[in-house]
Design a binder for these strands. Structure first.
Lengths: 169, 169
DNA sequence: CTGACCATGTAACCAGTTACATGATTCA
DNA sequence: TGAATCATGTAACTGGTTACATGGTCAG
């Protein structure tokens, strides 16, 4: 890493878009937006207002390039990584510092405070959550490696039930 | 849930502050800020610019109340939940819809694209990450239930090593 | 032809960010 | 007494959000 200028910094969303384009590209802004919208996490809403400006500013920064691929009267613009974009994508993907960050998990956050609830309330909440945590048997659609997500859901479920058991001791 | 008006909506950060105040309060804005700053996740920076305005607007919405507890010339203002604040905190804590959301994990996100890397690059990245994922033996400080975090780190580590094994098959 | 949905995009807003300002306290 | 740190707070910015506008395409 030779003097990575702050101007090369990418937001997590930008990095993710680059990785997406590298793996599945070229894509239109709309297609990118749909990937976000269909992802199981509400962390990103998959709003047009996020994606269209994002690709626009990345193109201006010479990270993406686009070509008009309209076949009808409707405009249609596909985006690809520039060479610089490839480099930044790799840097983002290999950013160990960021990768190891625990990030944000609304369940984990709440469980810190599970002890505040009355036994009965807590059990009711735990039941409701246990019902709703998706089971590995029905993997969430379209978020990359099947295995990754299956394993992730398994781990999260296991973790939750182990944590829950603490209150039963 | 009887007609929860949108004005009662809390951001995740606001909800977390309420839960914190309920469990450990009363606290000053500075003390709240420190909790965020010391948390292992970079998800929130723990900036004054987030916390001071937050408590101010929650007080204006009759969710928090504050009292001046200065003992020296330096102003010192402690915040507590109002009755309404208690209710909203419980609603936030028991929000199953939000709780079950997978949230955001920078590692999980990146691992979706691990297949793009050359074997050698990938192994190097995996090694670097494995070195840096905190071990359950050295729990992160001050983020609530010890057990919760220990279990969480264990689960994350297990998940990562199982996922990694896929590439070795 | 018309209504539903597809696709592109913009506008207004907002909850965070970084950076800075200011004064209080503490300690060498 | 002066430097470092504590503590409170504000200002400017920004990357997202929701909501809206507009026109194209397609099915009945």
């Amino acid at each position: 890493m030779v003097n990575p200028k702050p101007v090369d910094q990418l937001t997590e969303m930008e990095g993710l878009v680059l990785a997406l384009l590298h793996r599945d590209g070229p894509l239109t802004a709309y297609e990118i937006k749909e990937v976000f919208r269909k992802s199981p996490s509400a962390f990103w809403s998959g709003s047009a207002g996020a994606v269209y400006p994002l690709v626009k500013r990345l193109e201006k920064r010479d990270i993406l390039s686009s070509t008009d691929v309209s076949e009808t009267r409707r405009p249609r613009r596909e985006f690809t990584l520039t060479e610089r974009g490839e480099q930044l994508m790799l840097a983002w993907l290999s950013d160990v510092e960021r990768a190891v960050d625990p990030g944000y998990d609304p369940l984990r956050t709440r469980m810190q405070f599970a002890g505040m609830l009355e036994d009965q309330q807590r059990e009711a909440l735990f039941d409701a959550i246990a019902d709703r945590i998706p089971s590995p048997a029905s993997p969430a659609p379209g978020v990359g490696t099947e295995d990754l997500h299956r394993l992730w859901l398994e781990a999260r479920r296991d973790w939750f039930s182990r944590f829950r058991a603490i209150f039963r001791r």
